[in-house]
Design a protein around this nucleic acid. Sequence first.
RNA 1: GCGCCCGUAGCUCAGCUGGAUAGAGCACCCGACUUCUAAUCGGGCGGUCGAGGGUUCGAAUCCUUCCGGGCGCGCCA
Length: 572
Amino acid sequence: MATDSAPTQPNGLDFFAADIRAALAAALDLPADDFQLERPRNEAHGEFAFPCFRYAKGAGCSPPELAAKLAADLDIADVTASSVGPFLNFQVEPKRLAVVVMESALKPNFASDQQGLTTIVEFSSPNIAKPMHVGHMRTTVIGAALARIFAHLGHDVVRINHIGDWGSQFGKLVAAWKRWGDEDRLQADPIAELLQLYVRYHEEEEEDESLPVEAKAAFQELESGDDNETRKTWEHFTELSMREFNHVYDRFGIQFDFIRGESWYEDKLDPLSDWLDSCGVTEQSDGATIVDLTNEGIKTPCLVKTAHGTTLYATRDLAAAKSRWEEFEFDQLLYVVGAEQTLHFQQFKAVLKRCGAEWQQRMEHVPFGLIRLAEGKLSTRAGRVIGLAEVLDRAVELARAAVDEKNPELQGKAEVAEMVGVGAVVFHDLKHQRQKDVVFDWKEVLSFEGDTGPYLQYTHARCCSILRKAERPVASVADIDPALFDGGHELFVAIGRLPQALRESGQKREPMLLAHALLKIASAGNVYYRENRVLGTGDPALEDARLAVIQALRNTLALGLELLGVPVPEQM
RNA sequence: GCGCCCGUAGCUCAGCUGGAUAGAGCACCCGACUUCUAAUCGGGCGGUCGAGGGUUCGAAUCCUUCCGGGCGCGCCA
């Protein structure tokens, strides 16, 4: 439920941005919200930029004149305004910036921003009886990251895994099982056996006309709700599949608040149908029940029941959405589902709109691009698949080789290799813009150098190492002479921008923004500790200051990596 | 055919609510480990931002046409 959010002190650079906006508002006599501060292209120009073009007319002068006038007039604590042509640049007094950022970064709630909203994130949602392959990675990794980001921003987050455990395909599977199933093979390797049945069904379906008939009958038996043999078989498959999925979720460190398959909404399907009827939106067409959406600008009607009377994907999604609204009264419900399902979400929101359910506006499809192989689209049936577990295994294997080579003395190499391998895979997925298709390339995914997860982990591990070797507590920022933070400016700016990146990641549902902010921080961090030796300088005050910087860097990276779902080893 | 998404350096991508010389990583070529992990750091090479037209003081960014790629378009999910 939406509650009043307690105003929190802005963290990082937001602290100064607020002052600058207020000063601009006063000078130009406009609301502070109107001002979008940009970042100067050239870092030497300062931390914030304000192009004067669109305000010049109102001020009755040219943009450069306005910039010059504002530069002369504005008086902001700890901030110097200067004009360069039509641009007004703001430079924060470096020592002050260092202190504010350092204090922010050492707080546990760095970058948090209470909003008191209930946000449901539906993600992962694999189909039972099929292996999780790289195609499931994006929804799983992006969804989990968004859920963590919203939680950190102060939302009440509900994570739902909408398992695909219902639908006519399970009729097919049961039919295939009855003909060719083998319990021993099933026990030995459940998913492989189920997949084999699924593939065989599709191969023989065309030759054998009785097969589809049996499949339809089986799904009808399932939907009847009776506790029959078909249902027992289906429950068995579900249980075996979930066991397999949970292995993967454990490796990713992902937990759900609710694992609710489509079948969970089974008893809500009839009421849903009745509701749709009572709203007067359904009609019959070629024996099927549809909702016409032409007035909503969608040419394809939404099918809610087949000619055989069985439900469809849309029916179950409608029932799920309505049930969730009644249960949670969510402020937002995000569906982290592939872009190829855009039409489906448009349709089912339009159906709800026709029913007068205003809350449909709170539902949002968060689409992402496909993962493709160089050889073509992923296809379970055609055997063009790369298993998710296989990707992780190979990454971990390579990570192990890297650990053996780079740090042979390390304790717990197996654990570290697991963290590094998984981290590489997760980060690789999150550093790309959500919407774009990605061509799966082993070489890219398994890279540990440059802009990668392991690079961030390495930077974090280096910080841990320095802090370990210091063998003493880190002084508080208040006890440090700010002049000793000299040399860390670029790093402070990078860290100071994290709160904004985090906020935008949430607003745009784009974990990439956080990923890139972290890369910038790590890069600046690597430069910092290379050029500013921490231990053994013989100057205790300087060591205190630099240790604090390393601590801030470590905390920031740990926070960011954790939010993204990249494991955070302390040594590697 | 209609709809949606995408097209930026050899490769993978940032930048896109219009703004200051288009940025990273990889690859390639130089250079830096007696000192806190070289999974690092510094330098170099590399781009008519798919093509044309339009709007604007200003376009990779907005509009439009075309080309190229992907996805979707009623009883699968």
